[in-house]
Amino acid sequence: MAAIASQVVLHPTVSQSIKYGSTTLGRDKAYRAIQYFARFYTWYLLSRGDKQTAARWNALKSHLATARKLLRLGKPLEHLQAALRASMASGPPTEQIATIARQLSYFGYLSTDAFIWANAVKFWSLNPETAAQVSKISNRFWLAGILFSIVHGTVKSLRLAREVDGVKKHQVWGEKDLGAGTVRETKLSAALAAQETNRNQLVIDLLDVWIPATNLGFTNLNDGVLGIFGLVTSIIAAQQQWRAVNGKK
């Protein structure tokens, strides 16, 4: 019995899950996936007239949203630092400008989001009109950040495609210079990995952009659609974090 228990408790997947859950980003992505599933499921239950069960899932969604705001209280400074580093780094001008604008937008989004959290937990009371205005400003920053991220991802994808094509065109099969071939293979692997990461981020942005857009009234998607979008992007982001934490490519 002890042997079976040790095999289950000490299983590599369990150890990897603990390692993943010990990171703030890992917990945030897990909470986000549940939050958006709850958003979808609440919509589904209400569409079937099950208001009592829907109320439970809606409460879970709301509490997870509040908990995630608490986890993100220190992140505005991270984005501010990222913007400063991007301004000092060298790189394609369009990508650099889009990166700086994206990081500053997320700084504004998460800074105003902190006021929303403080009001939600009744630490700092805002009147309803002010709270609605702060929420609107926060969503504007969020939408701007995603749009700048889409611009950055689109431009970067074009550059990476050119790099991959360039490396492939200069490959000479059966060449005697093994060192040069190894360098090209390394460059190609790095470019392909960057392409995959950039492609995943573009998918996340193209789905997530509808959430603040709907919050601001620019679109009219229902909670079922937004819940699915948020769940999908949470799973993609969680997979990326899982690979980063557990050293998998």
Rank of each mutant, 00 (worst) to 15 (best):
A3K: 14
A3M: 09
A3G: 12
A5L: 15
A5S: 08
S6T: 15
L10V: 00
P12A: 04
T13A: 12
S17A: 15
G21L: 15
T23E: 06
A30Q: 01
Q35E: 13
Q35C: 05
F37Y: 13
F40M: 08
W43Q: 08
W43K: 04
L45Y: 09
R48K: 15
G49S: 04
A54W: 06
A55K: 13
N58W: 08
K61R: 15
K61Q: 14
L64Y: 07
L73W: 14
L80R: 01
A83I: 06
R85G: 01
A89R: 10
A89H: 11
G91E: 09
T94E: 11
A98G: 04
A98N: 07
R102D: 03
Q103S: 08
L104S: 06
L104R: 07
L104D: 02
F107D: 00
Y109S: 12
Y109C: 12
Y109R: 04
L110N: 02
L110A: 05
T112I: 05
V121D: 09
S125A: 13
L126G: 06
N127Q: 13
N127F: 14
P128C: 06
E129S: 12
T130K: 11
A132R: 15
Q133Y: 13
K136T: 12
F141E: 11
I146A: 12
L147M: 10
L147R: 01
S149W: 06
I150N: 10
H152N: 12
V155Q: 10
E163P: 00
E163K: 06
K168A: 05
H170I: 09
H170F: 05
Q171A: 02
Q171R: 11
V172D: 07
W173T: 03
E175W: 01
K176H: 05
D177H: 04
L178Y: 10
L178A: 12
G179T: 14
G181D: 11
V183H: 14
E185C: 02
A190R: 10
A190C: 00
A190Y: 01
L192H: 05
Q195W: 06
T197H: 03
N198C: 14
R199P: 00
R199E: 12
L202K: 03
L202D: 04
I204H: 04
L206S: 13
T214D: 13
N215R: 10
T219P: 04
V225C: 02
V225S: 12
G227V: 09
T233H: 03
I235P: 02
Q239G: 01
W242E: 05
G247W: 04
